[in-house]
Protein backbone atom coordinates (compact mmCIF):
# COMPACT_ATOMS: atom_id res chain seq x y z
CA UNK A 1 0.00 0.00 0.00
CA UNK A 2 2.79 2.44 0.87
CA UNK A 3 4.23 1.81 -2.60
CA UNK A 4 1.04 3.22 -4.10
CA UNK A 5 0.85 6.05 -1.56
CA UNK A 6 4.39 7.18 -2.34
CA UNK A 7 3.83 6.82 -6.11
CA UNK A 8 0.47 8.57 -6.04
CA UNK A 9 1.67 12.21 -6.16
CA UNK A 10 3.73 11.44 -9.26
CA UNK A 11 0.88 9.53 -10.88
CA UNK A 12 -1.47 12.44 -10.22
CA UNK A 13 1.05 14.76 -11.83
CA UNK A 14 0.86 12.50 -14.86
CA UNK A 15 -2.91 12.66 -14.67
CA UNK A 16 -2.73 16.45 -14.86
CA UNK A 17 -0.78 16.18 -18.11
CA UNK A 18 -3.29 13.64 -19.44
CA UNK A 19 -6.25 15.88 -18.62
CA UNK A 20 -4.57 19.00 -19.97
CA UNK A 21 -3.88 17.33 -23.32
CA UNK A 22 -7.30 15.69 -23.39
CA UNK A 23 -9.26 18.88 -22.74
CA UNK A 24 -7.49 20.97 -25.37
CA UNK A 25 -7.49 18.15 -27.90
CA UNK A 26 -11.16 17.29 -27.43
CA UNK A 27 -12.26 20.93 -27.86
CA UNK A 28 -10.11 21.28 -30.98
CA UNK A 29 -11.36 17.92 -32.19
CA UNK A 30 -14.96 18.97 -31.78
CA UNK A 31 -14.37 22.16 -33.77
CA UNK A 32 -12.60 20.18 -36.50
CA UNK A 33 -15.49 17.71 -36.49
CA UNK A 34 -18.07 20.47 -36.83
CA UNK A 35 -16.24 22.10 -39.74
CA UNK A 36 -15.66 18.79 -41.51
CA UNK A 37 -19.31 17.77 -41.01
CA UNK A 38 -20.50 21.07 -42.51
CA UNK A 39 -18.10 20.64 -45.44
CA UNK A 40 -19.40 17.13 -45.88
CA UNK A 41 -22.97 18.45 -46.18
CA UNK A 42 -22.12 21.61 -48.14
CA UNK A 43 -23.73 22.02 -51.55
CA UNK A 44 -20.32 21.95 -53.24
CA UNK A 45 -18.97 18.59 -54.42
CA UNK A 46 -15.30 19.54 -53.99
CA UNK A 47 -15.88 20.39 -50.30
CA UNK A 48 -17.69 17.08 -49.78
CA UNK A 49 -14.72 15.27 -51.24
CA UNK A 50 -12.17 17.08 -49.07
CA UNK A 51 -14.17 16.18 -45.98
CA UNK A 52 -14.65 12.60 -47.07
CA UNK A 53 -10.96 12.10 -47.82
CA UNK A 54 -10.04 13.49 -44.40
CA UNK A 55 -12.44 11.21 -42.57
CA UNK A 56 -11.45 8.14 -44.58
CA UNK A 57 -7.72 8.81 -44.14
CA UNK A 58 -8.01 9.12 -40.35
CA UNK A 59 -10.39 6.21 -39.92
CA UNK A 60 -8.29 4.01 -42.17
CA UNK A 61 -5.02 4.37 -40.29
CA UNK A 62 -3.99 3.42 -36.73
CA UNK A 63 -3.71 6.15 -34.11
CA UNK A 64 -0.09 5.31 -33.37
CA UNK A 65 0.85 5.69 -37.05
CA UNK A 66 -0.82 9.10 -37.11
CA UNK A 67 1.12 10.05 -33.99
CA UNK A 68 4.46 8.93 -35.45
CA UNK A 69 3.67 10.65 -38.74
CA UNK A 70 3.02 13.97 -37.03
CA UNK A 71 5.78 13.80 -34.41
CA UNK A 72 8.59 12.05 -36.29
CA UNK A 73 7.44 12.44 -39.88
CA UNK A 74 6.60 16.13 -39.95
CA UNK A 75 9.50 17.06 -37.65
CA UNK A 76 11.91 15.22 -39.95
CA UNK A 77 11.03 17.64 -42.77
CA UNK A 78 12.60 20.34 -40.60
CA UNK A 79 10.44 23.23 -41.70
CA UNK A 80 8.60 23.16 -38.41
CA UNK A 81 9.51 21.82 -35.02
CA UNK A 82 6.70 20.37 -32.94
CA UNK A 83 7.42 19.49 -29.33
CA UNK A 84 5.95 16.23 -28.09
CA UNK A 85 3.02 17.83 -26.24
CA UNK A 86 1.95 19.86 -29.28
CA UNK A 87 2.29 16.85 -31.55
CA UNK A 88 0.25 14.81 -29.05
CA UNK A 89 -2.54 17.37 -28.85
CA UNK A 90 -2.67 17.73 -32.63
CA UNK A 91 -2.84 13.98 -33.17
CA UNK A 92 -5.63 13.42 -30.65
CA UNK A 93 -7.55 16.42 -32.03
CA UNK A 94 -7.21 15.39 -35.67
CA UNK A 95 -8.12 11.82 -34.82
CA UNK A 96 -11.15 12.71 -32.69
CA UNK A 97 -12.16 15.31 -35.30
CA UNK A 98 -12.71 12.67 -37.96
CA UNK A 99 -14.96 10.62 -35.69
CA UNK A 100 -16.79 13.70 -34.41
CA UNK A 101 -17.38 14.75 -38.04
CA UNK A 102 -19.25 11.51 -38.70
CA UNK A 103 -21.22 11.82 -35.45
CA UNK A 104 -22.20 15.41 -36.21
CA UNK A 105 -23.06 14.65 -39.84
CA UNK A 106 -25.34 11.80 -38.79
CA UNK A 107 -26.88 14.02 -36.10
CA UNK A 108 -27.64 16.80 -38.57
CA UNK A 109 -29.08 14.38 -41.10
CA UNK A 110 -31.32 12.81 -38.46
CA UNK A 111 -33.30 16.05 -38.05
CA UNK A 112 -36.53 15.98 -40.04
CA UNK A 113 -36.34 18.05 -43.23
CA UNK A 114 -39.61 19.73 -42.27
CA UNK A 115 -37.58 21.68 -39.70
CA UNK A 116 -35.40 23.14 -42.44
CA UNK A 117 -38.42 23.86 -44.61
CA UNK A 118 -40.22 25.64 -41.78
CA UNK A 119 -37.16 27.75 -41.01
CA UNK A 120 -36.47 28.62 -44.65
CA UNK A 121 -40.14 29.48 -45.25
CA UNK A 122 -39.95 32.01 -42.41
CA UNK A 123 -37.01 33.62 -44.21
CA UNK A 124 -33.98 32.29 -42.34
CA UNK A 125 -30.81 31.81 -44.38
CA UNK A 126 -29.23 28.38 -44.58
CA UNK A 127 -26.63 29.36 -41.98
CA UNK A 128 -29.23 30.75 -39.56
CA UNK A 129 -31.32 27.60 -39.99
CA UNK A 130 -28.29 25.49 -39.11
CA UNK A 131 -27.39 27.60 -36.09
CA UNK A 132 -30.80 28.19 -34.48
CA UNK A 133 -32.84 25.20 -35.58
CA UNK A 134 -30.82 22.20 -36.73
CA UNK A 135 -27.65 22.16 -34.61
CA UNK A 136 -29.36 22.67 -31.23
CA UNK A 137 -31.63 19.69 -31.93
CA UNK A 138 -28.91 17.58 -33.50
CA UNK A 139 -26.57 18.24 -30.57
CA UNK A 140 -29.06 16.79 -28.09
CA UNK A 141 -29.27 13.61 -30.15
CA UNK A 142 -25.51 13.40 -30.54
CA UNK A 143 -24.65 13.68 -26.84
CA UNK A 144 -24.40 9.95 -26.04
CA UNK A 145 -22.15 9.28 -29.05
CA UNK A 146 -20.06 12.38 -28.34
CA UNK A 147 -19.51 11.09 -24.81
CA UNK A 148 -18.48 7.74 -26.17
CA UNK A 149 -15.94 9.22 -28.57
CA UNK A 150 -14.57 11.52 -25.85
CA UNK A 151 -13.91 8.51 -23.64
CA UNK A 152 -12.14 6.72 -26.49
CA UNK A 153 -10.00 9.82 -27.10
CA UNK A 154 -9.13 10.07 -23.41
CA UNK A 155 -7.88 6.50 -23.49
CA UNK A 156 -6.00 7.19 -26.74
CA UNK A 157 -3.92 9.79 -24.88
CA UNK A 158 -2.22 6.91 -23.05
CA UNK A 159 -0.48 6.10 -26.34
CA UNK A 160 1.23 9.50 -26.23
CA UNK A 161 3.61 8.06 -23.63
CA UNK A 162 5.55 6.45 -26.48
CA UNK A 163 6.78 9.85 -27.69
CA UNK A 164 7.88 10.70 -24.17
CA UNK A 165 4.98 12.78 -22.94
CA UNK A 166 4.89 12.55 -19.13
CA UNK A 167 1.22 11.57 -18.94
CA UNK A 168 -0.37 9.18 -16.47
CA UNK A 169 0.70 6.08 -18.42
CA UNK A 170 4.30 7.31 -18.80
CA UNK A 171 4.54 8.09 -15.09
CA UNK A 172 3.15 4.65 -14.35
CA UNK A 173 5.83 3.09 -16.50
CA UNK A 174 8.56 5.03 -14.69
CA UNK A 175 7.18 4.14 -11.28
CA UNK A 176 6.73 0.49 -12.20
CA UNK A 177 10.32 0.09 -13.30
CA UNK A 178 11.70 2.15 -10.41
CA UNK A 179 9.83 0.19 -7.71
CA UNK A 180 9.67 -3.28 -9.33
CA UNK A 181 6.02 -3.28 -8.22
CA UNK A 182 4.41 -3.50 -11.64
CA UNK A 183 1.24 -5.17 -10.37
CA UNK A 184 0.38 -2.51 -7.81
CA UNK A 185 1.43 0.45 -9.92
CA UNK A 186 -0.49 -0.62 -13.03
CA UNK A 187 -3.51 -1.46 -10.91
CA UNK A 188 -3.35 2.04 -9.46
CA UNK A 189 -2.98 3.60 -12.92
CA UNK A 190 -5.97 1.62 -14.15
CA UNK A 191 -8.08 2.69 -11.19
CA UNK A 192 -7.21 6.35 -11.78
CA UNK A 193 -8.22 6.13 -15.47
CA UNK A 194 -11.39 4.35 -14.45
CA UNK A 195 -12.36 7.02 -11.92
CA UNK A 196 -11.75 9.86 -14.38
CA UNK A 197 -13.80 8.17 -17.09
CA UNK A 198 -16.53 7.35 -14.62
CA UNK A 199 -16.73 11.00 -13.57
CA UNK A 200 -16.83 11.99 -17.24
CA UNK A 201 -19.77 9.62 -17.74
CA UNK A 202 -21.61 11.12 -14.77
CA UNK A 203 -21.05 14.60 -16.18
CA UNK A 204 -22.35 13.49 -19.58
CA UNK A 205 -25.46 11.95 -18.00
CA UNK A 206 -26.08 15.18 -16.13
CA UNK A 207 -25.78 17.28 -19.29
CA UNK A 208 -28.04 14.87 -21.15
CA UNK A 209 -30.71 15.14 -18.51
CA UNK A 210 -30.45 18.94 -18.46
CA UNK A 211 -31.09 19.07 -22.18
CA UNK A 212 -33.90 16.53 -22.23
CA UNK A 213 -36.53 18.45 -20.35
CA UNK A 214 -39.21 17.67 -22.87
Amino acid sequence: MDIIVSALPILLKGLQVTLYIFLIAILLGFLIGLVIALLRLAPLKILNWIAKIYVDAIRGTPFIVQLFFIYFGINSLQFISLNSTTAGIITVAINAGAYFAEIIRAGIQSIDKGQTEAARSIGFTGAQTMRYIILPQAFRRMLPTITNQSIISLKDTSLLSVIGIADLTQQGQIQASATFEAFKIWLAVGVIYFIVIYLLTLLANFVERRFQLR
Binding site: R120, G123, F124, T125, P136, R214
Partner: peptide, 20 residues
Amino acid sequence: LNKVRQEVGMVFQQFNLFPH
Protein backbone atom coordinates in the same frame (compact mmCIF):
# COMPACT_ATOMS: atom_id res chain seq x y z
CA LEU B 1 -35.34 34.63 -51.83
CA ASN B 2 -35.03 35.05 -48.06
CA LYS B 3 -36.55 38.53 -48.34
CA VAL B 4 -39.47 37.29 -50.43
CA ARG B 5 -40.10 34.39 -48.06
CA GLN B 6 -40.48 36.84 -45.19
CA GLU B 7 -43.55 38.16 -47.02
CA VAL B 8 -44.98 34.68 -47.53
CA GLY B 9 -46.05 32.70 -44.47
CA MET B 10 -46.36 28.95 -44.77
CA VAL B 11 -48.24 26.41 -42.69
CA PHE B 12 -47.42 22.73 -43.10
CA GLN B 13 -49.42 19.54 -42.73
CA GLN B 14 -46.94 18.30 -40.13
CA PHE B 15 -46.80 21.66 -38.26
CA ASN B 16 -42.98 21.66 -38.15
CA LEU B 17 -42.77 23.60 -34.91
CA PHE B 18 -39.27 23.79 -33.44
CA PRO B 19 -39.43 21.19 -30.64
CA HIS B 20 -36.47 22.59 -28.67
